[in-house]
Design a protein around this nucleic acid. Structure first.
Lengths: 220, 220
DNA sequence: TAATGTGAAGACATTCACAGCG
DNA sequence: CGCTGTGAATGTCTTCACATTA
């Protein structure tokens, strides 16, 4: 069924590349570069120049023929497209090993994500300080969502409680979850879910290493 | 240039789905299920039954018409395909916040990845215990690769030193790296690299949340 | 001139639909 | 009968090639 309006649909992979363009552009900005060509951008990301241009033109015409893209201007456009031209309020749930690491991770703040509160269920942890936050009990979660205007939740809880915590989070009105527990969470439509399964990443490495001898016998 | 042999090439996305099939199959095994159909497997992963069957037949004919797939048997096949029918020896480099979390993460061992050694450059950390390992100085890395027969490295070091550490790791003969530092590492051909950029994941959530009002105006 | 933006072509991936089998 | 395996059709994404523009 074609869309009545004739706007081209955006390939699903484009938004992931936009994040990568942003990283390169931020590097270029730090290096004091004024402009960058699609070719140079592509070379740094092992893509083709045509793909860079096509990706960007899904959202507008940002380039100058004969010159390239103005670095600062394109950073602004990409941030606007990704929605990181504002600061999002994030809650971290789970203050164990991984949660502690995420709480102290600088990269979130740099890209416009402010951790506003940290939660845990363990009585041993509640009240302790973590990265400048006093760890709160999950009982306070729903109230905090409205008080702090929380947008997203980062879930770093044990697999056994992950679905229950997820349900609670969704019930409190959160519509975006970044899940680190190694299971497939069930969420209602309208709630955005991104999952990071660390073991799967190592499996992919294993797959690459195992199948390298098969080049030619079987292309991958 | 077509392959001289006429074996079908495998879509790049298939190996990632194989990891997901494996998780579901392991769940089914725990639940005591003997067999599973492509339809049921697909339903749990929000895929189509045809895709599950096609994915699996890239590697062989594992199903029984009228029955489905034998859970235990298919687990074995998928592990063999992914290369996790053996135990890989992994070194963790970087014993900071994220490194500590990864060191204690159970999921690696469960899928066949054994952390054999942990390294750091900080004199303050060397010698300390982390998840049953005495943290070693990076000077010992090259010797340990051969002594322990290390296969892969998980890099959880600060961005400033990541490329240098990576070069050292590659020089020591490691051919598979899982990188958590938020930069694009340069590695020679033949070295496999998987990157996990945590901030990018939150950006994807931001993109989804920001563009949801555009449904219809622009399909995603 | 040196680069973008873009329709058209090509490559790739998914879904369909049904033959064939247990 | 139910389910797999698979060629054919469809759909999606990437690359090509060039008109266009500052």
């Amino acid at each position: 069924v074609p869309d009545p309006r004739d706007l081209p649909s955006i390939p699903k992979t484009v938004s992931q590349r936009l994040s990568q363009y942003l990283r390169v552009l931020q590097d270029l900005q730090r290096a004091g570069e004024e402009t960058v060509s699609s070719r140079s951008l592509a070379a740094r990301l092992e893509l083709t120049a045509a793909q860079v241009r096509k990706d960007l033109t899904y959202f507008g015409q940002f380039g100058l023929p004969g010159v390239g893209y103005r670095v600062v201007g394109l950073i602004g456009e990409v941030r606007r497209i990704l929605g990181t031209d504002r600061t999002w309020s994030v809650a971290l749930i789970g203050a164990g090993n991984l949660g502690s690491a995420l709480a102290r991770y600088q990269g979130f703040a740099e890209q416009g994500f402010a951790v506003r509160a940290i939660f845990d269920c363990s009585v041993a942890l509640v009240g302790r300080d973590l990265a400048g936050h006093s760890i709160r009990h999950m009982d306070e979660f729903e109230a905090t969502v409205t008080d702090e205007g929380l947008d997203f939740v980062v879930l770093a809880v044990p697999i056994e409680v992950a679905q229950d915590v997820c349900d609670l989070v969704v019930g409190a009105g959160i519509r975006g979850i970044l899940n680190f527990a190694p299971l497939r969470l069930q969420v209602p439509t309208g709630v955005h879910l991104i999952a990071v399964d660390l073991a799967i990443q190592l499996e992919q490495l294993s797959f690459l290493a195992s199948s390298e001898g098969l080049d030619g016998e079987r292309r991958i």
